[in-house]
């Protein structure tokens, strides 16, 4: 019985290691991902000053949110909101696209949470990020 169990484990391990090797890299160079990335890249110039001022923060679920727009003139707040909404639409599409490009649509949530921690990790000092206890400044 022990022997059977062992061989099952062994086989499992073999499959697992094979899968790990096969998935050494995630495909992120499809035209769809490139298009979304390009769109986010050009939007970053608009968002960067808002990250720095604290008007916009990085949320714990890999999105962005208006945190405190009081420093932004009233007339620019609609545009700010639009930018944030567009950024979030792109981010959602990006996570979905990476999952489907790699043949695993069910990975979307995990990809999103991976991104969430990486965005926050790479955020510049002074930017606001959302943790378990709320907003904090890096």
């Amino acid at each position: 019985m022990k022997k059977i169990l062992f061989s099952v484990l062994l086989l499992g391990a073999m499959f697992a290691s094979q899968m790990v090797v096969a998935a050494a890299d995630l495909e992120v160079n499809t035209p769809a991902i490139t298009a979304i990335k390009g769109s986010m890249q050009s939007r970053h110039a608009q968002l960067a000053p808002h990250y720095a001022s604290g008007a916009v923060g990085l949320t714990k679920d890999g999105m962005v949110a208006v945190r405190d727009a009081n420093a932004v003139p009233l007339k620019d707040r609609a545009a700010l909101n639009g930018t944030v909404a567009a950024e979030n639409a792109d981010r959602a599409k990006l996570y979905k696209e990476i999952a489907t490009a790699n043949g695993h649509p069910e990975w979307q949530a995990e990809i999103q949470s991976t991104f969430a921690s990486r965005w926050i990790d790479k955020a510049q000092g002074g930017w606001w990020v959302q943790g378990a206890g709320g907003w904090t400044q890096k």
């Binding site: 008007a55 208006v66 945190r67 405190d68 727009a69 009081n70 420093a71 932004v72 009233l74 707040r77 909101n81």
Partner: peptide, 11 residues
């Protein structure tokens, strides 16, 4: 007036 996040405000 303004709310905390500045999403409802007047000047």
């Amino acid at each position: 007036f303004s709310d905390e996040a500045g999403l409802h405000a007047a000047e």
